[in-house]
Design a binder for these strands. Sequence first.
DNA 1: AGTACATTTAACTTATTGGTTATTTAACTG
DNA 2: CAGTTAAATAACCAATAAGTTAAATGTACT
Lengths: 108, 108
Amino acid sequence: MIFAALADPTRRAILARLTEGEATVGELAEPFDISLPAVSRHLKVLEAAGLISRTRSAQWRSSRLEAGPLREATAWMEDYRRFWDESFDRLDAHLKRTLARNEENHHD
Amino acid sequence: MIFAALADPTRRAILARLTEGEATVGELAEPFDISLPAVSRHLKVLEAAGLISRTRSAQWRSSRLEAGPLREATAWMEDYRRFWDESFDRLDAHLKRTLARNEENHHD
DNA sequence: AGTACATTTAACTTATTGGTTATTTAACTG
DNA sequence: CAGTTAAATAACCAATAAGTTAAATGTACT
């Protein structure tokens, strides 16, 4: 559920905005060129994923970032860390070989 | 793109399987109750996201885990770490309060 | 050359997603 | 209480995703 919530760029932008503090739906919608209901539904998705919580006060609903699911997501990715180090090593080796070959060829 | 690729549970299971080493499409498909073409397309999505690379040899295509994009994804999430600590603190405080209240009520 | 095998591509179906506008809900305000 | 404001919901539409079966591709085997 969390990855699906993060898959949309508008939702990621909303999360980024919320790092600066709570905001109302209207405020969150402002930078985007989409309708308010569209934003409202993005917020619903984020809330369902546990990435935001909302409080109502008068006619404003304030959204607040809840990063817990991100912690879980990184925990899941941790299992792959050893592989990305390895991938990097392989990439690194590859780049070095390529570079060396270039040096040989047109040794200017 | 990476988050969308990770959003599907079948694809995450495929990645998990690949931590045990390279595998052919048939081998990857085996644990799932879906058709081979379906698996083939999941692999295409993973490849497009840079999460696997593939080598052809005879009639088998072997898939290998490429964890680089996961590194980038965690890097992106790093920006939110301060918030999840904070969320945790808040959750923790909440749990402690709740626990204390329970202790009071039915102090068994 | 002909067949078998592993995989991909094509064509199609169904469900989900992300957007729209119009309507409804809820709370404040004069 | 009527009107305004903020947001959510409803009803709808187009695009995408995930699955299917059937056909095509590419390589190996005899």
